[in-house]
Amino acid sequence: MGTDIRGGLDQQWLTRLRATLTSDFEAQTARLTELTADTGDPGEAHTRAAMIADTRQSLGQIGDALRRIAEGGYGTCERCRTQIPPERLEVLPHARFCVPCQREQG
């Protein structure tokens, strides 16, 4: 799991996560490049626009998570400042809020 005995996030886990997120960021960047360069069927323009928006959102979330890791704030809820459970981070590595605060965000 991703915690150490002090209840914080394990550094080895964070190192692996950083590598995974960096790889995901690179893959999403390549996907965005392909999508924006595609001049295919004009009938698919709406679908392509949605895919571009989704890819940009993913890039933003991954970039924000990498920034929080670099700054030492990863895994801390941005609203209540409590630690986000590692199980949530395993499922949603870009989570910015604990579950109760996320519910309040809407």
Results as ranks from 00 to 15, higher is better:
M1T: 09
M1R: 10
M1G: 14
M1D: 09
T3S: 09
D4K: 06
D4F: 05
I5N: 13
I5K: 13
R6V: 07
R6G: 08
R6A: 11
G8F: 10
L9Y: 04
D10P: 04
D10N: 14
D10W: 06
D10R: 12
Q11I: 15
Q11M: 13
Q11K: 15
Q12I: 13
W13E: 10
L14A: 01
L14S: 02
T15F: 09
L17I: 06
L17E: 04
L17R: 03
R18Q: 14
A19N: 14
A19M: 09
L21M: 01
L21W: 04
T22K: 01
S23M: 09
D24E: 15
D24F: 12
F25M: 14
F25N: 11
F25C: 10
E26Y: 11
A27Q: 07
T29V: 07
T29G: 10
R31L: 09
T33M: 14
E34W: 08
E34D: 15
E34S: 13
L35E: 00
T36A: 05
T36S: 07
A37H: 09
D38E: 06
T39S: 11
T39V: 10
D41N: 02
P42Q: 01
A45H: 11
A45S: 12
H46K: 12
H46P: 06
H46D: 14
T47W: 07
R48K: 04
A49G: 13
A49K: 12
A50L: 14
M51R: 10
A53R: 13
A53H: 09
D54K: 08
D54I: 05
T55M: 00
R56D: 00
R56K: 10
Q57R: 15
Q57S: 13
S58L: 15
S58V: 14
L59C: 09
L59R: 12
L59A: 07
G60Y: 06
Q61R: 08
Q61M: 05
I62H: 00
I62T: 01
G63C: 01
G63Y: 02
G63T: 01
A65F: 04
L66K: 14
R67D: 15
R67G: 10
R67E: 15
I69L: 02
A70M: 10
E71L: 07
G72F: 11
G73K: 08
E78A: 05
E78S: 04
R79T: 08
C80K: 11
C80Y: 13
R81P: 02
T82N: 04
T82M: 06
Q83V: 07
I84L: 04
I84W: 01
P86D: 13
P86I: 07
R88D: 00
V91K: 01
V91Y: 02
V91H: 01
V91F: 04
L92P: 03
P93W: 01
P93M: 01
H94Y: 15
H94S: 14
A95Y: 00
R96P: 05
R96K: 13
C98H: 01
V99F: 08
V99A: 11
P100D: 04
P100E: 05
P100C: 01
Q102S: 13
